[in-house]
Simulated assay, not measured.
Amino acid sequence: MPGKNQFVYNKWMVVELEKKKDVFLQTAYMNGIPTEQRAFGIVVGSGRKGQTYLYWDKNSLYQLPVSYYTPANDWCNSPGYSENYIRFDRPIPATCLECHSTYAESKEKKDGGTVFNKKSILYGVDCERCHGPGAAHVAFHTQHPEAKTASNIISAKNLSRQQRLDACAQCHSGLRKHTQPAFSFTVGQKLDDFSTPNYDVDTVGNLDVHGNQYGLLTACRCFKMTAQLDCSSCHNVHVSERQNMTAFSQRCMSCHNVNGVAHDSCSYKPPTGIILADNCVDCHMPLLPSKKITLKLANESTVEADMVRTHFVNVYQEATKRFVEKSR
């Protein structure tokens, strides 16, 4: 849209986003002169928080400099890129697509770069990413429509707690050091046999809120005090429940409801009319600023932190004050 299609770094450097015929482009301008232009190749991200864009250079992928940030309905510098100068040179390894697609065949070059087989890529995160290859499953149930028990497919019901946690931790435990090629891990296997965390497990309480929900969750008392709590205790991955604080809070109550008294373990006494049990999340898992992801918006001159919901369940007094003010 004219007037909404530029990201201005400063008065000398601008990236313009445009569509020519059926191709979307990002073009860098230095002092009004176009210096580099690349076409959108792959869109990464659901759009819930935002989207970033990759471009093809032969069979290798690189990140485009400008991304979209949903909360502000605006363009921003792409994650990993400076807000002060234009770059197009961030290479995308297979480990990036491992969390942002279902499958991609790749090979590492001697210079450290990655080449992909474009025809092999299964875009998006679909059922097979968690449940494993589905061809045999489909074939069996096509031939046996009367069968009610899922066959030839990975079911979370048959996994241990750590196996279920590992399934989520593959993409929700921050950057990991890979000891096996991308896409080697299959749900049900031990994640540490394929990649290891790049942080000290004794300092998980200090992790940034962006990207390591697993590390934060496993550091908190709620997790340590029960042998059953895992990601699926709160998240139903097959249902969109974003912003449904009541639904999430009911799951908190499944542990914190003592002798039929909801929220019995909370010592905070709210003002009249505010029902804490309807929203445990904004007090105990608030949105916090990320130190890893900072953004400059196209129409702003300042840099701001991305706000991410922490998974370290704790008492956050300032968050409680904000929640009460907002609820009045």
Rank of each mutant, 00 (worst) to 15 (best):
185 F>P: 12
238 H>L: 13
210 H>S: 08
217 L>M: 15
195 S>V: 06
220 C>T: 04
213 Q>W: 10
188 G>W: 04
233 S>K: 00
195 S>A: 13
237 V>S: 15
201 V>A: 07
202 D>C: 05
226 T>M: 05
230 D>H: 12
215 G>P: 03
183 F>H: 10
193 D>Y: 07
231 C>S: 06
241 E>V: 01
195 S>K: 12
242 R>L: 12
210 H>Y: 12
219 A>H: 04
191 L>M: 12
208 D>H: 08
223 F>A: 05
227 A>T: 00
241 E>L: 05
215 G>C: 09
193 D>L: 10
209 V>N: 08
237 V>T: 05
195 S>E: 02
207 L>H: 03
188 G>I: 01
243 Q>E: 04
232 S>N: 11
241 E>K: 03
234 C>P: 04
224 K>M: 11
206 N>W: 04
240 S>F: 03
212 N>S: 15
186 T>N: 14
208 D>P: 06
243 Q>R: 05
235 H>K: 15
230 D>E: 05
210 H>R: 07
211 G>P: 00
221 R>H: 00
184 S>P: 09
194 F>S: 13
232 S>H: 13
199 Y>L: 12
233 S>C: 11
200 D>E: 09
220 C>I: 00
224 K>T: 14
242 R>V: 15
236 N>A: 12
212 N>Y: 10
209 V>W: 05
235 H>Y: 07
213 Q>V: 08
205 G>P: 01
222 C>D: 05
241 E>I: 00
218 T>V: 15
209 V>F: 08
201 V>D: 14
221 R>L: 07
202 D>E: 06
184 S>E: 07
220 C>N: 15
209 V>D: 07
194 F>M: 12
190 K>S: 06
233 S>V: 02
191 L>K: 10
219 A>C: 03
187 V>C: 13
238 H>S: 13
236 N>D: 15
204 V>N: 14
231 C>R: 01
185 F>H: 11
202 D>R: 11
220 C>W: 00
243 Q>V: 04
238 H>M: 14
243 Q>I: 07
193 D>P: 06
193 D>N: 15
228 Q>V: 13
191 L>E: 13
181 P>V: 05
198 N>H: 09
209 V>S: 03
205 G>A: 02
196 T>D: 01
240 S>L: 02
231 C>G: 00
193 D>H: 12
